[in-house]
């Protein structure tokens, strides 16, 4: 497999992102994800992982650098217009609309596509991927358990049928059995729909097991990029993230 040779679906070039004048969270980060590829991003707390995903989704504006999606430069595309291009972010901490029901959260997931046939298809798909959610359709999202909430956050991001899905620590605060279930769903989406995935995950072995390739981010810089197998074997990852 030679993903670098294929035209990337998403590419970030030399991104610099700062919070205010002081904190320089990203200092020249370049990443690329090919169509249908699964890529992991690992790094310690505060490394800038969330900052990178938010910048790709348009929630943060880079000081310098470029973001390309599907052959088009999208730096100037406002965040609300990006889902329609085929990209979605499952944000850190889920960020559900807690006062709305599960079904209403999903309806808003497809806010920009009101076509009833599309909605029906996507709902069926989401119920099939996450059967627990269908039993909770009328329940307020704020009352879901952590695992159910994470499933809903992913399901909401799937409602526009993205080609590129970013996930920011989907396993945070969830019991291991549910983490496996969620990773299985991602694996299925990748296999059955050729969904490209960019995954930030604390559980490094699990993330690298799913991913073809990975990046290591340290204090705002990419310090290592390699196929998952090589990353797992590298000294840096073994010492810093696997505690070996």
């Amino acid at each position: 497999m030679a993903p670098a040779a294929e035209a990337p679906l998403l590419e970030a070039r030399e991104l610099h992102v700062a919070y205010g004048a002081g904190v320089r969270a990203l200092q020249g980060v370049s990443v690329r994800v090919a169509p249908g590829e699964v890529v992991a991003l690992v790094g310690a707390n505060g490394a800038g992982k969330t900052t990178l995903l938010k910048t790709l989704a348009g929630l943060l504006t880079p000081v310098a650098g470029e973001v390309w999606f599907d052959g088009r430069r999208i730096d100037d595309v406002p965040a609300p217009d990006r889902p329609r291009l085929g990209m979605a972010l499952v944000p850190e901490g889920r960020r559900l609309f807690s006062r709305l029901t599960v079904a209403e959260n999903l309806a808003l997931g497809a806010f920009t596509n009101a076509d009833p046939a599309h909605r029906r298809r996507m709902l069926e798909r989401v119920w099939e991927l996450f059967p627990v959610l269908s039993a909770r359709a009328g329940q307020r999202a704020g009352t879901l358990s952590g695992g159910e909430g994470q499933m809903l956050a992913i399901a909401r991001a799937l409602m526009l049928r993205p080609r590129f899905l970013m996930l920011d620590e989907p396993s945070l605060g969830i019991m291991p059995r549910l983490v496996d279930a969620i990773l299985d769903v991602l694996r299925r989406l990748h296999r059955e729909e050729r969904l490209a995935i960019f995954l930030v995950e604390q559980n490094v072995p699990a993330a690298l097991d799913l991913a073809d390739r990975g990046y290591v981010l340290q204090t705002g810089r990419i310090v290592l990029e390699a196929p998952s197998r090589d990353l797992l074997a590298s000294d840096l990852v073994r010492k810093a993230y696997l505690g070996l």
């Binding site: 406002p78 965040a79 609300p80 889902p83 609309f97 807690s98 808003l108 997931g109 806010f111 920009t112």
Partner: peptide, 18 residues
């Protein structure tokens, strides 16, 4: 619903295209 979603979480609303 979109109004309510915006009032609860602007960023999350933007992520679904509102």
């Amino acid at each position: 619903l979109a109004l309510q979603a915006t009032s609860e979480d602007r960023e999350a609303a933007m992520l679904v295209g509102i």
